[in-house]
Every structure is written in C-alpha cells, then in structure tokens.
Design a protein around this nucleic acid. Structure first.
Lengths: 209, 209
DNA sequence: CTTTCCATAACGCTTTGGGGGTATGTGCGG
DNA sequence: CCGCACATACCCCCAAAGCGTTATGGAAAG
C-alpha cells in the first residue's frame, strides 16, 4: 500500500445517503481516502482548515450557505484548494458562478462512479474538468448579457405577482423605471412577456422559488 | 443470522452514487438485504417481477417514466407491493399523486439513514409512513381545488409566454374562453396575475419547465 | 477625459390582461 | 332525472403591460 500517493478527499453534502455512496465509492479505491465530511458550509470550512484535503467534493445546495459561496470562502483562505461542485441539476447561471468561484470541476449527481473517480484524479493532477454535456449547456448562453443586480431584484418582484407600480413602491423608484427594467429583462432573456421571463429565469437558475 | 426474517429490498434510482449509499446503509443492517436495483422504470418492473421484493425504494424522477407511474404499473400487477417514494424535493402535487398511486411512504433524499431504516421496517410491517414535514406541506393545500386538465394545458401555454389569443388558436378555442380558464387558474392557485400563477404552479409541481 | 453601462425618469400610444356578468351543451354521479 | 362541474362563448370596462423615444447623472473603464 503506497499510502504516500493517496488523494485525500473531503466530502460536503447535506444528503447523508449520498455521502455514504461517495464514501463507499472513494474508499473502494486504493489511491484515494475520504478524510472528512461535512453536512453544511460552516462545518465544511472547519473541516477544510483541519484536514487540508487534496480534493473537495461540494454540493451546490447546503443548508446554511450555497456551495458556490462556500467555495469562494475556502479559496480565499486556501487559493490552491481543488474543489469539485456536485449537484443534481441546476441552470447555467449556477455553473458559471461555480467556475468563476474557482471550482475545478462540476459534476452531476447522476454521474457514474467511474467518471467521478476520473474527475477526482484529473482535478488532483491540476486539471479542470467539465463534462461536455454541462459545457454545452454553458455555451448556449455564453454570449447572453447578464442581468444586472437591479434587474434581478425586479424579476423577483415580478415572480411574486407584483404589478409594476407596486414594484416601484417597494424599490423606491417610479413605475416608469420599473418598466424600463422589465423591458431589458425580457430582451436579455429572450422572453415575449414578463411571465415567460420568470419561467426562463427559474429554469436557468437566475431566480429561485 | 436469522435469514428467515430479512426484509428483501429493491432500490430504483438513476443516481448511481445514491444507490451506493442506500446499498451501504441497508446492507449494514442484519434484518435487511438489498436484492436488486434498477436505474430506470423498465428495469425496475423487470426486477420486481423477478425478485418480488418486500419493500421497494423508488426515485420520483427516472429517465424513462415517472416514479409515480412506475408505482402504478407495479401495483397493478402486484397489488400488495410496498413502495416507498424517495425524492430530493417536489411540490405537494407530486406527493399527493404518489399516495394516490398507492405508495406507502414518501421520503426525502436528505433523510438521515436511521429514519430511512425505520420507515423501511414500518412499511414492511404494513404501516404507512409520511414524515410530518411532508404531511404538513400536503395538508397546506388539501382544501384547494385541483386544476382541471384543460386549465393545466392553458397554464403550460401561459408559462411559454403565449398571449390569450395565441393560446386560443393553439387549443382551438376562443380568446374569451381562455380568459375564463385563466381566471379560474388564478383563483384556484391564489395568484394575483398569470405570472405569479406560473411561479406557484412550478413550485407546487403542477407544471414543470 | 471620453465612452460605455447602469439606474433613473417622463410621455404618448396600442395591446393585452383581468374583473364582472350571463349563457349553453355535455357528461357524470347520486 | 336532477344537479353539478366543466368547457365553451360573448359582452362591457378599465387597469396594466409593453413599445418607442428621449434624457440625465454617476460610476467604471479605456
């Protein structure tokens, strides 16, 4: 047993059953070792500090903080941290944010264990790896303009069934300004009306319900 | 080892990592045994016929058919099948459909392994078990009127950004009739406009994107 | 020091949405 | 057989949404 070469792994996920599965798959490999796990962002950061894993597998949805923000927090402290995001499925916006946050990999939870192991090894070796399926989805909206902070705020209000006038009152701007934002939102998302804009934004992960 | 008393379990899920986790948890128990697993509905039905498990754990989302429909199919053939639906999280409509389909339990994938084992034992013993958290969510809309088939069709069209007039043309009815449907949809969902109706419908699992 | 982007605002105009009411045919369950 | 739910349709009316255009101040980027 060449202990020296083992890849030390931290698993962060709030689904205990999935953590069990990951643990089983990883511990079946002689060149890998699961050194710790965490069910939330807070614990993940503590475990990272304590164990300094070579590779971290991180769920995108955690009870206390998003996986993306947790990734940012860890990488601020440990810029060389190699983190792979693991998720059921999210819109392209989440993927983009994850990569901007410095994630080295992005995997679906439906990934076959074989591929998970491959990606862990590649990321440990310093590579980045995004499955083609996900890369394709990302590319689809690469040229799209992002919504601004304000536009997302307005969009959230729209999804809650607020009229332009009410949105204006809540955000302390005039109805006219709201209309301008709504127009830009529809243009950027390619929606024909506010309703479709909300549907598209939910699908792409721009807003959550 | 009292082999005689073992609960024979079939696991149906298209996430291999989660299947691994479930397998690990179940096989750690002396009174349970995982006898087969399947990654899709078709295989699930074949495995059920072949193995006649005491308890089946079934994901709600499968590549070829929904877990609810698979449950219906299996229970048509084996009315005594004891099936527990396992899901990440869905709207109350999915839960309701699952129970109507004859599921004996409904668990979230975030359930602690201990509870999973409890539920398996209870369902095997002939009980039904729905966690209080889920039961509460279900109860929240129990008194709500269901949308009719037509109303759901109209709602889907709305989510795609169609105007009432276009919806009418697609469904071969007048714009006036569409308006009536829209009004009923908003009333039943408690939405203030069509946009919020779509948001609520997505959250509750009435329509999917 | 411009140019660009963002947020803000206003005005006029047309289309669409949503509220109210009334009505008719069909099919299903008591 | 009667009632009820459903889908259909038409009416009026006004509020709201969406489209085009113009404009201004601030911040960031070049």
């Amino acid at each position: 047993m060449s202990e020296r070469a083992q890849i030390r792994i931290l698993s962060v996920d709030d689904h205990p059953l999935l953590r069990e599965g990951i643990a089983a798959v990883i511990n079946s490999q002689s060149d890998m070792q699961l050194v710790a796990d965490a069910a939330n962002a807070h614990d993940a950061i503590l475990q990272f500090r304590k164990n300094r894993p070579d590779v971290t597998l991180m769920d995108l949805r955690l009870p206390d903080m998003s996986g993306v923000d947790t990734t940012i927090a860890i990488r601020r402290e440990f810029p060389n941290a190699r983190i792979i995001l693991l998720t059921t499925f999210e819109g392209d916006v989440e993927i983009q944010r994850a990569l901007e946050a410095g994630a080295r990999g992005y995997l679906l939870k439906s990934t076959p264990p074989k591929e998970l192991l491959e990606v862990i090894r590649e990321v440990h070796a310093g590579k980045k790896r995004i499955p083609s399926q996900i890369a394709a989805q990302l590319a689809e909206h690469l040229s799209d303009e992002d919504l601004t902070t304000r536009e997302v705020e307005v969009l959230r209000q729209i999804a809650e069934g607020n009229r332009n006038r009410d949105i204006g009152e809540k955000l302390f701007i005039t109805e006219e300004t709201v209309k301008v934002h709504v127009k830009h939102i529809m243009e950027k998302l390619g929606a024909s009306d506010r309703t479709q804009a909300v549907a598209i934004a939910i699908r792409r992960g721009i807003i959550h319900l």
